[in-house]
Amino acid sequence: DFYVAEALSSGALVSLLDEARPPDEGVWAVHPHPRHVPPKVRAMIDWLHDRLSAPGVRNQG
């Protein structure tokens, strides 16, 4: 859905076989130590969170 969300919401594409769709999986950010996350890594994690939480992007809560 991430790549085609806009086309699905506009009706340009139609989803087929929704009942055969595998369950969604989360996106994980793995880094060596949670207390000392480098600022660049933290910025990337925050950017991913913002992008993947945007309206039209399906997530599991």
Rank of each mutant, 00 (worst) to 15 (best):
R51Q: 11
D1L: 06
A20N: 04
D1Y: 15
A20R: 04
D24L: 15
H33T: 07
H33P: 00
Y3L: 07
A5E: 07
N59K: 11
A43Y: 05
L48M: 13
V27M: 04
R51F: 02
P34N: 04
L17C: 15
H49R: 11
I45M: 07
E19T: 14
R58P: 04
Y3W: 14
R42I: 05
F2W: 07
V37C: 07
A54F: 05
S9W: 00
P38Y: 14
A20K: 01
R21D: 09
P23S: 02
E19V: 10
R21Q: 15
Q60Y: 05
V57D: 05
S15K: 08
A7C: 12
K40T: 10
N59L: 07
N59V: 14
A20I: 06
D18E: 13
S10N: 03
V27F: 02
R51W: 06
L52K: 01
V14R: 15
G11L: 02
D1K: 05
Q60I: 06
R21F: 09
P22R: 14
P22Q: 10
L52T: 05
R42E: 13
R42F: 13
D18F: 04
L48R: 06
V37P: 09
D18K: 09
E19F: 04
G61Q: 13
A12C: 01
L13M: 02
L8M: 13
H36L: 12
A54Y: 04
H36W: 05
P38I: 01
Y3C: 02
P55W: 01
L13Q: 03
R51L: 08
R35M: 13
H33W: 02
P55K: 00
L52C: 02
V30N: 06
V4G: 11
R58H: 11
W28P: 00
L48T: 04
D1C: 07
V30Y: 06
A7V: 07
V41T: 12
R58V: 06
V41E: 15
D18V: 08
R42V: 09
L8R: 08
G11E: 04
R42L: 13
L48A: 03
E6W: 08
R51E: 12
L8D: 15
V37W: 14
L16C: 12
P34D: 09
Q60E: 07
A43E: 10
V14F: 09
H49N: 05
A12I: 00
S9M: 08
S15C: 10
M44Y: 08
L13N: 01
V14Y: 04
S15G: 06
G26M: 06
F2G: 06
P23Q: 03
E6H: 11
S53V: 06
E25D: 13
P22E: 14
G11T: 00
S15V: 10
H31S: 14
P39E: 12
V30G: 03
P34L: 11
A54C: 01
P22T: 14
P38H: 10
G11V: 01
A7I: 05
P34Q: 09
H49E: 12
I45V: 08
A5C: 13
G56W: 02
P38K: 09
V37I: 05
F2Q: 07
Y3A: 03
G11K: 02
A20D: 01
V30S: 15
F2R: 12
G56Y: 00
